[in-house]
Write a protein that binds this DNA or RNA. Structure first.
Lengths: 237, 237
DNA sequence: CGCCCCATTGAAGGGTTTCAATTATCGTGG
DNA sequence: CCACGATAATTGAAACCCTTCAATGGGGCG
């Protein structure tokens, strides 16, 4: 069974540089001569490795090339609270410009390679390149918009609806990065999904089972096949 | 009874210009000669007046001078979903840079006066003033950070805790704007609070009653007096 | 192949919502 | 200034959804 899914979107999924959120404004492409000072390309981290600890000095953004990371804080009672999953093409750290510190821990969900983009050097680049400036504004603003949608998801929707929205958003995110497919390989565990959605593992599992009974999707471990995209969208209102 | 509270923080509460989120970088202060082209100061709106409708072209930010506004979308089933309250000194519209459209409706909660800051002109100002640029980056980044905290609030906390966090955050926001006081006049109704926190009116009301039984605060209509700030903070873990 | 972890499923309990009724507050006009 | 009506807020009881606790099943990795 698994062999049906595995080739469709494996852990080694990555975006070509021109499809990442930096897009055609990738700093190395713009400034070949500065390559290496602004951007350390393709640094690798192992599954469960911590890229960044909360409250350490903010020095650089992380742009996911392959794999995936989660951002989370540790609450007073030593629980994890995940507030973001980042997939290939995504940029991590935009929330840190104001605080100058990392507001979250960043941990690799699988083996992950990233481009590391130094904050200070990006800022100096902004001064001499209007396109880079506009891009960074756009990325920041888009991040806010995404969080607004997440807030909406939490405060308005029930468990089934939240999960439907979550899976659909994963579909859309892959699509935006040029991987339009009804077959999704989850980078994160059920526990991570539950935590992120403000639910328990059991509830997520039960909702997935309901979706399968309704023939909306099939879920087998980390492999999800969307069988009725419209029904999935409807569930999220 | 009401007369005890009313003078403490009335509807006419406003921040002096140097305490708003724009701070010492207020555009009119920086560029006296450009005043009027970049910023229309102190436009007034009546209670319940809609400043902006969702999906209209994004042209300007709104900086609250006095009063308050809420941002919200209307869901498919014609319900409101509030995702932000903006108090004097706050800036509205940062999420619109990427979409070039307003992502939310903006409505005045009370009679409200705002500074209207044109987007295009702010952008040209950014090119010639590094401080303005850094400020805008900071505001954007801070907005992301705030939404992260809101997401945390939703997914991790129960009704009592959410409400405690909400009231405490109002206290902190007034404090940051130079109005440090345990007496808070709510700009929004119970219905708005409930909607924002993902709860029902009844749950909010019951939680408030519990807080009063524990002598943590007193709530009378829109007037709240925090009687035990530490206990309130503890409730939010 | 076997172990361990992750995921699934079931049943009971708790918190929030829903529905309903009452009380309080605000704005308006006499 | 008080009275009135309309709106907002509070309180109660039942229903529902999600969580919690517990047990079973399955998949991945050494």
């Amino acid at each position: 069974m698994q062999s049906i899914h595995k080739p469709l979107r494996s852990n080694s999924y990555s975006v070509p540089c021109e499809l990442c959120s930096i897009g055609s404004l990738c700093i190395p492409l713009l400034l070949n001569d500065k390559l290496g000072t602004v951007l350390d390309r393709k640094k690798s981290y192992l599954k469960d490795e911590i890229l960044v600890s909360k409250n350490t000095e903010f020095t650089r953004f992380y742009i996911i090339h392959s794999g995936a990371v989660k951002t989370y804080i540790t609450t007073a009672d030593n629980n994890e609270q995940i507030n973001g999953f980042y997939l290939p093409g995504d940029i991590v750290g935009l929330d840190c410009i104001s605080t100058k510190k990392y507001n979250n821990n960043i941990k690799a969900l699988t083996d992950t390679s990233v481009c590391e983009l130094k904050y200070e050097e990006l800022m100096s680049l902004i001064e001499i390149n209007k396109n880079v400036r506009d891009l960074v504004f756009k990325l920041l603003s888009n991040d806010i918009y995404n969080y607004q949608k997440l807030v909406l998801c939490y405060s308005q929707y029930k468990a089934d609806e939240r999960l439907a929205i979550f899976i659909h958003s994963l579909y859309l995110r892959y699509e935006q990065r040029g991987h339009s497919s009804l077959n999704i390989k989850l980078a994160m565990s059920r526990a991570d999904i539950a935590n992120y959605l403000g639910l328990t593992i059991e509830t997520v599992s039960r909702s997935l089972s309901k979706f399968q009974e309704k023939n909306i999707l099939s879920a087998r471990g980390k492999y999800i096949v969307i069988k009725n995209l419209n029904a999935l969208i409807d569930l999220g209102n």
